[in-house]
């Protein structure tokens, strides 16, 4: 079985983002970019499945500008066998178009499993996995915190983090799985593997070559900073806190 993993290049999770003064977006030039943390978890899961002998090959794919090749190079250094970069140039690729691109790649590569992060930490959309599953008419296991494959019966048992606790479902393969935080702890790329990754192949295609039209259904009107909270006060005792909550904030 082959596993495909989608990875996204985003502003590093530790960066304190700045909204551009002209309100057109968030500053990304000269800002540290990294692989979306949920995508690292997705890739790690695919690698572990391969290492357990249940899959033969892990293909990492990414959609976005030229620099996405760096993110794919990281994926190769972590252990992906090869990579596909769908170069969209400077165009903004909305999630539905990403899902259609992934559908086209899945149809070409025929993986038994497509794993994605549950959301990207830049736009916080939490959509792409569900959408590609719908387009492919595959079963979906979103927000996974545990995945167990049954190769013989072509099924995956997925534990999902839902609002009420942990839900367990069983999916027919092929399936789409999106990863939650506690699925695994992603590995670091070692120096020898970073060196080895340099000779691995990143295939480049364009959305046009995949016959996917980038349809901008959602126009960004402006990006602003959220209202700031007023600075609070530091109190000196529990008694003072109770008094403030009772008589000033009136919440007790």
């Amino acid at each position: 079985m082959k596993i495909m993993v989608a990875v996204k290049r985003v502003v590093d999770y530790a960066v304190k983002i700045r909204v551009k003064p002209d309100k057109t977006g968030v500053e990304t030039t000269n800002v540290k970019m990294s692989m979306n943390p949920f995508c690292e978890i997705a890739l790690e899961e695919a690698l572990r499945i391969r290492e357990s002998g249940l899959a033969k090959e892990v293909v990492a794919v990414s959609v976005g500008p030229t620099q996405c090749a760096d993110t794919l190079r990281t994926a190769l250094a972590m252990g992906a066998d090869r990579a596909v970069h769908v170069d969209a140039g400077t165009a903004n690729v909305p999630p539905l178009s990403v899902a259609k691109i992934l559908r086209a790649l899945v149809q070409a590569e025929q993986p038994g499993l497509l794993i994605l992060g549950k959301q990207a930490i830049d736009d916080d959309c939490n959509q792409t996995g569900q959408m590609v599953a719908g387009l492919l008419k595959w079963s979906q296991g979103t927000f996974a915190s545990k995945v167990v494959l049954d190769k013989e019966n072509q099924k995956a048992t997925v534990e999902r983090e839902v609002d009420g606790g942990i839900e367990t479902i069983c999916l027919d393969l092929p399936a789409v799985i999106t990863t939650d935080l506690r699925l695994n702890q992603p590995r670091y790329a070692t120096l020898p593997n970073i060196m080895k990754a340099k000779s691995k192949v990143i295939k480049k295609v364009t959305p046009e070559e995949l016959n996917v039209e980038l349809r901008p259904d959602i126009e960004i009107v402006q990006v602003t900073e959220p209202p700031k909270r007023k600075a609070g006060v530091i109190l000196s005792s529990v008694d003072e806190l109770i008094d403030k909550l009772k008589n000033e904030a009136r919440v007790l």
Binding site: R215, V221, T224, P226
Partner: peptide, 19 residues
């Protein structure tokens, strides 16, 4: 015309649905 938070709520994005 909607507002939704992005970047963990560190920015607010106003979007127009044109589809």
């Amino acid at each position: 015309l909607f507002v939704r938070p992005i970047y963990a709520g560190n920015a607010l994005c106003t979007v127009q649905y044109t589809g």
